[in-house]
Amino acid sequence: MDMKHKIYLALAIIVCAVNYGYSQNNLAPDAKHSLLRKLTIEPGVGIHTNFGTDFLISNLVQWNPTKRLALASHSSFNINNVAQRNFNYVNTDYNYSLNQKFGIGTTLYAKKISHTVLAMVGMKYTTFQETLDNPNFNKVSTTISAVSPDYGMMYSLKRGWKKYFFTTRFYLPLSPWLTEGAKIENIQGTLRDTALEFGIGIKIL
């Protein structure tokens, strides 16, 4: 089975599983008022799971046009490698990423919480500059700016049914693992961008 077929199979399994949940699941009686929560804004902060060296400021806008169908827009501004800005005469002048993704998925409801699983697709812009400022050598700066695809699966947990509620999100990118080649060395890249976010949600509609 080649790479494309593996990816298609993985997505098919995920979609089937989500659909199965959709068809089998009923709305929890205590959560009927959740039907009113059609549009939410969920600002938050987070980290990447690469030992927490990146700091994220993010926002999820989620629209549920129907009880089960969820559409979402996720934006984040990442300050990368925030703790280490000077190492062995290497200065990090700046290092950040901007991510924008859109997603479609489904929402499942329970008594006090709701679960949303989303397939996300978007772009990531990363830019950073390092300068070697060692007195023994000439000063050298290098700048990297790159746009890359960003897609993966997001799980969003919302707790509470009032206007303000607690929200937490977990994002597992499918790139570079699977897209660049399902090899062990690409897992590190995938784990690097795996994100965990926490925030307060606001019910708009």
Partner: peptide
Amino acid sequence: GEAENSGRMQAPFEA
């Protein structure tokens, strides 16, 4: 790697 942004790799490499 272009994504080696750990704050130590790129500038010495370029030097």
